[in-house]
Computed example of a mutant assay.
Amino acid sequence: MDITITVNPSVDRLYQLKELKVGSLNRVQLIKKMVGGKGINAARVAANLGAKTTATGFLAGYNGQYILEQAHNDQYIANFIKTNGNTRNCYTLIQDDNNKTEINEHGDFLNLDRFESLLKTIKTLIQNNHVSAISLNGSLPPTKINNFYPKIIALIRQTDPNIKIILDTSGQALTDVLTSKNLPDFIKPNEQEAAELLAATVTRDCHKLKKEITHGILNKVNNIIVSLGDKGALVKHQQQFYQVKFKPVKVVNTEGSGDSVVGGLLYALDQKLDFLSTIRWAIAAGTANAMETKTGFVQRERVIDIMKSIELIPVTD
């Protein structure tokens, strides 16, 4: 079984308008209302591919109830912890020229007793199931709890050291983990996030990126997938690097593609596949999501077809 942990999910609303007029009345049309949350998207994808998957984290209020109702349409198991307040809203405003403005709420304050409830839930899930992989996903809500993700990683390691841990976050939350003793097995920054962590310029040059990773903070993590958009990805496994290439596809919606990479990883780790096969499933899942209208969704047959065109080319000095 796989587990995804989303501590700061959201209900996402997408609005279309001709032009955003700051300081004036804007009348918009709601194009889409959907469940947001990296771990929820990853759980949906892993379940679509065939892995038994449980999604946990925190839900609250009307928005939390909406997320639970939507979960009935998916194949993952919802095992969320209810909290006070209301799960946050995130808004995306898209103008006719495709200029996008995002407005994301921080989420309600998370106190210590709720965090301890999460730790207890994770431990119980591990003890009562054969868990292959766990992903920690997304941003953190406002909280005074220090080393949030490192503490969860430590609990997982103590409960079952054989579980593979995927971390999909950015900013300070990611830095806190990378500077701790509690490292995940996988991370998947994009090129911008990798550049920020390495204090380097953004690049899609795999040879340059390999050199920067080898001499930077990211080298502490054994397995890294740096997504490079339509240029594929750079993958690190121990001290080996691979450039991932695949046949171009017709892109419909790239939202959730990174989360779908995590979903593919979860599935492959649950199947105990070798490393290169695991990467193929991950990249194919992320690519297949981009061909769908729905965010964080893949068709298994399409993923398998995409895998046929994936190349992993060793990156040498």
Rank of each mutant, 00 (worst) to 15 (best):
I94P: 02
I152T: 02
A46F: 01
K208V: 07
K247D: 15
I31A: 14
D160R: 14
A154D: 05
I134F: 04
A42Q: 03
S180W: 11
G296N: 00
Y267W: 12
Q271R: 15
N98V: 03
Y149W: 06
G37E: 13
V22A: 12
G171F: 03
R280G: 10
K38V: 03
H72Q: 15
K21L: 14
G36A: 10
T143G: 10
Y62N: 15
S117L: 08
N98T: 09
D185L: 01
E105C: 03
D96V: 08
D108C: 02
N190D: 08
S260M: 06
L25R: 14
G258V: 03
K220F: 01
R13P: 04
V35K: 00
E212I: 12
Q16P: 02
H207N: 11
L234R: 06
D74I: 00
V252G: 04
G85F: 00
Q243K: 15
V235E: 04
K52T: 08
G286W: 04
N98Q: 11
G138M: 06
Y15S: 12
K120W: 09
L273D: 14
P9Y: 05
L68N: 12
M307A: 05
L30G: 10
L198C: 07
T293F: 09
A268I: 11
A282M: 01
P142H: 06
G258A: 01
F58P: 11
Q95I: 04
D168L: 09
N190K: 00
I306E: 02
N86C: 10
T4R: 11
S170V: 07
E196R: 09
I224T: 02
V131I: 15
D96I: 05
N162I: 00
N182V: 08
L312K: 00
S10Q: 08
H130D: 13
I166G: 03
I77E: 12
G264M: 05
A200L: 00
L174T: 07
I306R: 00
K52E: 14
S135R: 12
I213L: 06
T56C: 13
T295Y: 11
K181Q: 13
N48V: 02
N289A: 01
V315E: 00
L312M: 14
Y15D: 09
L49H: 01
A195P: 07
P142A: 02
V298F: 02
P189A: 08
G256T: 05
D2I: 10
H215G: 06
D160E: 13
N223C: 12
L125F: 00
T278W: 13
Q239A: 15
A233C: 08
P314T: 04
L17W: 03
N190I: 02
I145P: 08
N98M: 07
T169V: 09
E105A: 08
V303E: 03
L234W: 04
L25E: 13
S260H: 07
Q70C: 07
G23P: 04
L273Q: 13
K236N: 07
D259Q: 04
D317Q: 14
L136I: 14
I156R: 03
Q158H: 03
Q158I: 05
Y66E: 01
A195R: 05
L118A: 01
L178C: 08
K38E: 04
I40D: 05
Q172T: 15
V226T: 04
R13I: 11
G57Q: 11
L140A: 02
N98G: 01
V28C: 11
L118E: 06
R44K: 15
G216L: 09
Y76C: 02
N104D: 03
G23M: 07
